[in-house]
């Protein structure tokens, strides 16, 4: 396009830059996500949270599974791991235990984390593994073409439910709560400020933290259901969301077009896996216990 037609009427100071860029592998941008997809918006919030938390980025590792959100790891300029479908959490578990000084963030989608990876999610939450799980919930399997996910609300048309979804969906925040997560919140991609703050908070919270982000998928979810484009969904989030911090998670189910309860639901203190491990070994072995030095020292 001709630059003249869109000449920016603001004066851009020399040396200014998009604050997201230092967090991205700019040689991989533009990304693969569709117009109106919300994943990029969540990445903005995540980078603002990293910035605000003043984390040493050399010590932050990001682990993704497979799918649209699974591509986040590849764009983040961190130590990043794009693993197999559903297995980001157990990979992150090994990574964290081998090097406890790492801040390990799992960034993946609803299908990846809660269908094929559901078993790992519940056990990592049960153990209170000190990892943070960011789930971008677009209510479908987007990368494979819009099939029914365990999060797809009833009556939605999907590629594999052409007559409408009839099986009940998971309420992710209730699941995380029931499994013992230390921190549970839900936002939508409309709530960018709250989401960034919540991400900053979860990064500082010890134990298993979980944030669900309800996010538009105009191409594979909305199109089949005549739900408009990304912006239409963002407007729906704005209109239908109710912030209810501390709401009982059992009351926070998502439906096709109803109210979306957002907020921080759980923030509790539980010893994490590593603390429990050390306490048990100290109790049982006393002086014989050797603190883990898992990384091979001389190699």
């Amino acid at each position: 396009m001709s630059e003249q037609l869109l000449e920016v009427e603001c004066e851009i100071p020399e040396g200014s830059f998009n604050p997201v860029e230092p967090f991205l592998r700019m040689d991989r941008i533009p990304h693969i996500w569709c117009a109106g997809c919300g994943i990029g918006t969540t990445v903005n919030c995540f980078t603002r949270a990293l910035l605000e938390s003043k984390a040493n980025l050399d010590k932050v590792a990001i682990v993704s599974g497979i799918g649209c959100t699974g591509r986040v790891a590849g764009y983040a300029r961190l130590d990043s791991f794009h693993t197999t479908h559903g297995r980001a959490i157990p990979f992150a578990t090994g990574l964290k235990l081998a090097n406890p000084e790492l801040q390990v963030v799992v960034y993946s989608g609803d299908g990846d984390l809660f269908a094929i990876g559901g078993n790992h999610f519940i056990h990592a939450a049960r153990r209170n593994m000190d990892i943070k799980v960011i789930c971008v919930n677009n209510l479908t399997y987007a990368m494979t073409g819009g099939q029914t996910a365990p999060t797809t609300p009833s009556h939605v048309i999907s590629a594999t439910a052409p007559y409408g979804v009839f099986e009940p969906a998971f309420n992710l925040v209730q699941l995380a709560d029931a499994c013992g997560a230390s921190y549970v919140a839900r936002w939508t991609t409309f709530h960018v400020k709250q989401l960034a703050r919540s991400m900053e908070e979860v990064l500082k919270k010890k134990g298993f933290g979980f944030i669900e982000i309800v996010s538009p998928c105009p191409t594979l979810y909305q199109r089949r259901n005549k739900m408009g484009d990304g912006l239409d969904t963002m407007k729906y989030y704005k209109q239908a969301s109710k912030i209810r911090h501390g709401a009982p998670t059992g009351e926070c189910s998502l439906t096709k077009s109803g109210e979306i309860v957002v907020g921080k639901f759980i923030d509790r203190e539980r010893p994490d896996y590593y603390e429990l491990l050390q306490a048990q070994m100290h109790e049982s072995l006393g002086d014989r216990y050797a603190e883990p030095e898992v990384g091979c020292s001389e190699c």
């Binding site: 869109l6 000449e7 920016v8 009427e9 603001c10 998009n18 604050p19 997201v20 860029e21 991205l24 941008i29 533009p30 990304h31 996500w33 109106g36 997809c37 919300g38 994943i39 990029g40 918006t41 990445v43 903005n44 919030c45 603002r48 991609t189 960018v192 400020k193 960034a196 990304g230």
Partner: peptide, 21 residues
């Protein structure tokens, strides 16, 4: 494109929303 540059507060909400950086 910018239609009212004088109103910009520099809040960067646009930057936080933009899925395409």
């Amino acid at each position: 494109h910018v239609v009212a540059s004088d109103k910009c507060s520099g809040c960067d909400l646009c930057g936080m929303y933009c899925p395409d950086f």
